[in-house]
Nucleic acid binder design. Sequence first.
DNA 1: CGGCTTTGACCGGCGC
DNA 2: GCGCCGGTCAAAGCCG
Length: 225
Amino acid sequence: MFHPPAARVLEMLDHHQLGFTLQSSSPLPPLTFPCFGLQLDRTCCSTPGGPGGGDQVRFPASSSSSSAQISSSIAWAWTGDHGEDAILRKKKEVGKPDDDDKKEKKSSDENRVSSAARMVMMKRKKKVMRKKVREPRFCFKTMSEVDVLDDGYKWRKYGQKVVKNTQHPRSYYRCTQDNCKVKKRIERLAEDPRMVITTYEGRHVHSPSHDEDDSYSSSKVNLFW
DNA sequence: CGGCTTTGACCGGCGC
DNA sequence: GCGCCGGTCAAAGCCG
């Protein structure tokens, strides 16, 4: 299992040009990632992965119940160089136009939705997928009893899937804010069901739904991007 | 009644 | 070419 320290995480974020520059002063102030709705506390990262050590991801949550159940967390990140993003980029490089011929061949199936509706759906889907190429992603792991951590934003569940080799389903959430295309995936670690893996994708174009915690945010280094 | 969750179906990509 | 897989959609149901 890959458990890089927070400093490494931030290096990765920086190297992938996610829009901000890291500061190397010590002691390191907590960094916030408003677009993901979380804060990365770098003050306790001396012994990553060790007992009592590791980095902390804190949520500006109004309800303390969820965050209180997070006993530890380890964060890491990546951007569009992995998995389906690479696939999508490859597809884009080829410059393949939106071919509708594949859909046409199935239009005779009367048991399905009308071809017109299907085409509309597909075009929308492709649009979303193509956009996905540029979306930065941030993934972290928390030990929590609850699946959905209150990160200050409002999410709507749009799917759930049982992925291979895991007994726990993966849940898919979208930010409910208009024009905000941020998504997040939540799944439990197969090896340790106590651990929740949360993957944020995209940037919030708005503040958290309950962002009245001024005292909390004023002491941090805010990095809007 | 509006917003949210659930859930089965569908799609594209990939490996064989 | 076919089957598997992850991601998404949308109808139906649920809930406050």
